[in-house]
Design a protein around this nucleic acid. Structure first.
Lengths: 70, 70
DNA sequence: TTATAATGTCAACTATATATTGCATAAAGT
DNA sequence: ACTTTATGCAATATATAGTTGACATTATAA
């Protein structure tokens, strides 16, 4: 499914998909597909995106679900 | 470099590489290589590992570095 | 209207994550 | 000594992440 959190973080930083792509060393299409939820990026790419947007992995890529509330 | 945090979390849960591999649907070698830092797993695999070990992405795969202390 | 910037999408390609198999070693159990 | 369990390490095979280039849409600005 779509990654709204990443898109919102990018828009908050006022950078385009293309600028973000350049910052993390991939192409515009790759960023677009991640935001569209069309695939499964590598860990290193996720980390690079987080650093570029001033967020952590949990901020952008972690979903708490309603179990495991220990 | 090696992923000690993941190995420690696995050992704390007292499960073998092979058991973890089965839980997350990959082979033993894949788990071994991730712990050895020999490659770059996909986000979905990282998430599956976190869920299996009762940790979050930040717990196992995020490194704070000494910049960006805003 | 005509540019231009940001994005979506598609097809064909390349790089690499992951599978599969097999062999090796060390530790623990019998 | 023999077996089992856990792990490491390669070689080859396959699936998929990511590239490249092109064309489309939408929105904004001249």
């Amino acid at each position: 499914m779509k990654n709204l959190k990443m898109k919102i973080a990018r828009v908050e930083n006022e950078i385009s998909q293309e600028q973000l792509a350049k910052m993390v060393g991939v192409t515009r299409q790759t960023i677009g597909m991640i935001e569209a939820g069309k695939f499964n990026p590598s860990l290193q790419l996720c980390i690079a995106i987080c650093r570029a947007l001033g967020k952590t992995l949990n901020d952008l890529f972690w979903e708490e679900n309603e179990n495991e509330k220990i």
